[in-house]
Each structure stands twice: as structure tokens, then as C-alpha cells.
Design a protein around this nucleic acid. Structure first.
Lengths: 146, 146
DNA sequence: TGGCATAGGGATAAATTTATCCCTACGTTG
DNA sequence: CAACGTAGGGATAAATTTATCCCTATGCCA
């Protein structure tokens, strides 16, 4: 069902009731988005301007990053500071609750890296997965190499 | 693009290359599915027969659970033991790597529960979320109350 | 002036994920 | 026999998420 919000932007109201019964689903809802963990991670590493983030995650379009950053903001995980300058300058930062998510993000990152060999194998075997791109984000990977 | 696998089941090959660059995305791929964390959690709690699991997660249809369990199996997180009996008996169990995911799952569960009040508020404020069902899974929540 | 950088977002298409519906099998219970 | 329990899965519809395309604005540099 379309929602018209004064100026007629297009939005969709979800039809399937959100299940929020257990902590698992709450957390999943917050991290639900292809780039959200990566965004939180980037911001936690002080990569906070949209253009910087975009260079860090070249496979994501600016559009998606904007959308998912806004959702993170709406969920209270990040704060957006707009500097009244020209050219525009924007900086994101983690909120307190956003920071509290970082141990989780780090754990995800570590688990995936620790099991990379195995996971790449089983994922590659799955016929549903056409091509796999495990190349990009050089800067990202470098910084992650703690 | 449709793939025909001998007996003509319908399958879709993904068209967008999977991004597997960092541990974050690998982990996300494994947990990608509305019920996967809950399934892993259930199995870890010794709720291992499909019918038991289904009763534990009444909001999920049997169909989805079957599908996501199969994906977890293909990814090597769970093992399926079929007892040659009638009526059929099936039991799932976590593999070693599946067990290694549990600290992550537990952390997600704890983070969500610890921030439930805040999260329910921000999520309810989002006009995109129509109805929110935070009722079900009584057994589940009871068992979670460690 | 043309091109690039900054940041943002509407409209729509495409892809992916979930939900719905319905059918197979066999044994036990009422 | 009918109804229900066990387990599974095909076909298709619906919902949701991502990708694509394109446009707005302003300043700086060559």
C-alpha cells in the first residue's frame, strides 16, 4: 500500500507484521541490509564522510548507502552531522547504542574470516551462486587486518 | 535464469555476484534468512525434530523452515539424520562449525533483549512498519530466560 | 564554460526472499 | 474410513530489497 507523505514521495508500508519476539529478531532487524554491518564498521573506523565510505565500499551504489545510512540513523545507531558549508560536508558517527553493537560486528567479521576457506568452498559449491566477487575493498581489508 | 536439474525442479541462479570480500559478508551470507539464527538457536537447545522446531516458531511456515534448514545444511552448519522409520523421524544437530556460531547468536540475542525497550520504540516510530507482532514463541522466550 | 567533487533523492526495474496453496506417503487413533 | 501426525517439496504469488537511471545544487580548477 502506497503512502503519500505530503509531497508525494513513494513509500511502502510493510504488509507482513514484523516479528520482534526475541532479541534475535530485533538485532536482525537493525542489521538487516546488505551494507549495514560494513557501514557501522566503517564509521567506527573513523571513515565517516559519505564520499569516503563510498570509496571504501565501491561495490555499493551511493543510493543504497544513503538509504541504509538513513535507516541506521532512524534506528538510532548513527548520528549525522551536517556542516553548513559549500561544498556540503557531512559526517556520521556512532551513537552510544551504535557502539554497543561493535563487539557483535567484530565477532561477525572474525568468524567469517576465521572460516573463510571452508565457507568459500561450500558457497562456491552452491549452484544458486553464480559468480562470486571476493576481490574489492582493498583499503577495507587492509584496515581490518588488525 | 532458470536451471533445470534433471527432474525439472525450478531454481534460480543469482545474477548479482555475491560479495564475499570480508568476514562480515561471509557471516551475513550464512545467517541470511529470516529464521536461520532462530533455527540454529533451537537446534542448539536440543529442539531438533522438524515438528518440534515448527511448534517453537509458529509464525514460520513449514515450507520456509524446510528451505532454510536445507541451506544451513548445505552451508555445513547443521547435519540432518534421517531415521528409516515410519512415521518418519528426522533430527538435526549442529556441526562443529555450527557450534562455533553460537557465541555470535547468543550475543545477538542478548544485545536485542538488552535494548528491547529502545528498539521497540524506534521501530514502532518507523512508518514503514505496519503492524508489529511481538507476541509469539512463548516456549522460546521461556527457554531463553537464562 | 566544461568537468569534477561535494551530498541527496525520486521513479522505476530487477532480483531475491517469503508466503500461500496444494500434493505425496504411511501409520495410528477415533 | 476419516482425520491427524510424521516429513518434504513443486509451482506460483506476493512482498521486500537492491540496482539503475537520472536530476538538483554549488564551488573550484583548468
Amino acid at each position: 500500500m502506497r503512502i503519500f507523505d505530503q509531497g508525494e514521495p513513494v513509500m511502502y508500508e510493510k504488509k507482513i507484521p514484523l516479528t520482534i519476539d526475541c532479541g534475535l529478531h530485533l538485532t536482525k532487524e537493525v542489521l538487516n541490509g546488505k551494507w549495514k554491518p560494513a557501514l557501522l564498521n566503517a564509521i567506527s573506523m573513523d571513515i565517516k564522510r559519505p564520499s569516503e565510505i563510498s570509496r571504501l565500499l565501491p561495490e555499493a551504489t551511493r543510493r543504497v548507502l544513503n538509504v541504509q545510512l538513513k535507516e541506521l540513523e532512524e534506528h538510532g545507531m548513527v548520528e549525522k552531522k551536517i556542516y553548513p558549508q559549500l561544498p556540503p560536508k557531512v559526517e556520521y558517527s556512532l551513537t552510544e547504542i551504535g557502539w554497543s553493537l561493535m563487539p557483535l560486528i567484530d565477532a561477525m567479521n572474525r568468524w567469517g574470516d576465521a572460516n573463510r576457506t571452508f565457507l568459500e568452498t561450500v558457497i562456491a559449491q552452491d549452484p544458486k551462486n553464480g559468480k562470486i566477487s571476493k576481490s574489492p575493498c582493498p583499503a577495507y581489508r587492509r584496515m581490518r587486518a588488525i
